[in-house]
Amino acid sequence: MTDKEEPLLASVRNWAEKTGLPLELYTKSVFGKEGFSVSHSTLYEDMQADKAREIDIVAYWRDTLGLVQIYFVIECKSSSKPWVVLTDKASFPRPLNYSFGLFSANVAEHIPIHLDLYRSDAGRMLEILHRSGYGLKVAHSGNDDPAFGAAMSALKAARAHVQNTAGKIDRFKFAIPVIVVDAPIVECNLSESGELEYRKVDYSEAHFNAYIPELQRASIRIVSKEALPFYASRFRMVAQAIVAQMTPQIAAFVRDMAQARTKPGPP
């Protein structure tokens, strides 16, 4: 390395460290180590704005046939300002259907998730990850709060992934929005005595609703950089549990394909 190259590399390093790029690459690496197929800077179609947009990370899990597809669509946000999650256990005591994130229409047609949510391994995993959150903000942000934009971006990307109908086979798709931050996360709730309580956490969850253009609702997970390896392993367990829950649909697909191959053709 020459003397002229050193200042150049130093300037690029200083620039990169001031962006979210290191956090994005770290997140990609963590999910890759958990066995996910991971893509960085993935484009998706924003149907509301009628343009292509970019999501930082997409971590992908599927069954061996690719019939069940689970996407963790991830926004990475680097900031020194704390992220605040408003929680209310009275209003959100347990996970709901949209704790699975968004899913394709055929999922609801073939498996009524709400009927066996608490009896399945997937339901139990969602119970472990449930935090009764309903609001998400970044402290000290004034009117320019990046939390809403990050949640909206993750939700739109999730919607695009479950509504992508490319291919001849009707696949079962799940898309779970996630925000990874390198800032503190604080949960805030109103106590029974009417006072606000604050608790620093390394992971939380908030239900998020938006019209894009029709109403979409999903749980968005917020994970700190330090805790990401642990929760990436939990997300892998969620994906595996979803695949296991869809076993009857996978078996029916294999059976139908086998019957189609053995069915005699026209004389």
Results as ranks from 00 to 15, higher is better:
F235Y: 09
Y231V: 01
N209C: 15
A241E: 08
P213M: 05
A160H: 12
A158N: 06
F208I: 02
F172S: 04
A151I: 07
I179H: 04
V181N: 05
S193R: 15
A166C: 08
A158G: 08
Q240W: 13
A183I: 00
N189E: 12
E214N: 15
G167W: 04
V181Q: 03
V238K: 01
A218P: 10
R199I: 14
F235A: 00
H207T: 07
Q163Y: 14
E226W: 05
G149C: 10
G149Y: 03
S204L: 03
M152G: 09
I169C: 12
V238L: 13
S153W: 08
A154D: 07
E192C: 12
A151M: 04
A160F: 13
S191L: 13
F235V: 01
K173L: 04
E205N: 09
I212T: 13
F208E: 07
V243A: 06
S224D: 07
F172C: 02
G167Q: 00
D170V: 09
K156S: 04
V180H: 03
R159C: 11
Y198M: 02
N164I: 06
I176H: 05
I176F: 00
R217Y: 10
P229S: 08
E195K: 15
R234E: 09
R199D: 12
V186Q: 09
P229Y: 04
I169H: 11
A150H: 00
R159Q: 12
D182G: 00
N189L: 14
S153Q: 12
G149L: 10
E205K: 03
S193K: 15
F230T: 02
E195I: 15
R234C: 10
S204R: 03
N189G: 14
L215K: 14
Y231S: 04
M237T: 07
S224N: 05
P184W: 03
K173S: 01
A210M: 10
R171P: 11
A158Y: 08
K225V: 08
I179V: 06
M152E: 09
F174T: 05
F172W: 09
F235R: 06
A183W: 01
Y203L: 00
A239H: 05
V180C: 01
A232S: 12
S233E: 11
F172N: 03
A175M: 02
L155P: 13
D170N: 10
F230V: 06
S153R: 12
D202T: 06
A175D: 01
Q163F: 14
M237D: 08
A232H: 03
A239N: 00
A227M: 02
M152C: 11
S191K: 15
M237S: 03
S191Y: 13
V178S: 04
V186L: 08
V186N: 00
A151R: 02
Q216D: 15
V201L: 06
S219C: 01
A244Y: 01
V238I: 09
R236F: 12
A183D: 05
R234Y: 08
G167A: 07
I169F: 10
F172V: 03
Y231N: 04
K168T: 11
N209L: 15
G167F: 05
E226I: 01
S224T: 01
V162G: 00
Y198S: 02
I169N: 09
L196V: 08
D182Q: 03
G149I: 11
N164Q: 08
A154W: 07
A206P: 15
A239I: 06
N164G: 04
N209Q: 14
T165N: 14
Q216C: 15
V181E: 02
Q216H: 15
S224G: 02
C188T: 12
F172P: 11
E214S: 15
P177R: 02
D170P: 13
V223L: 10
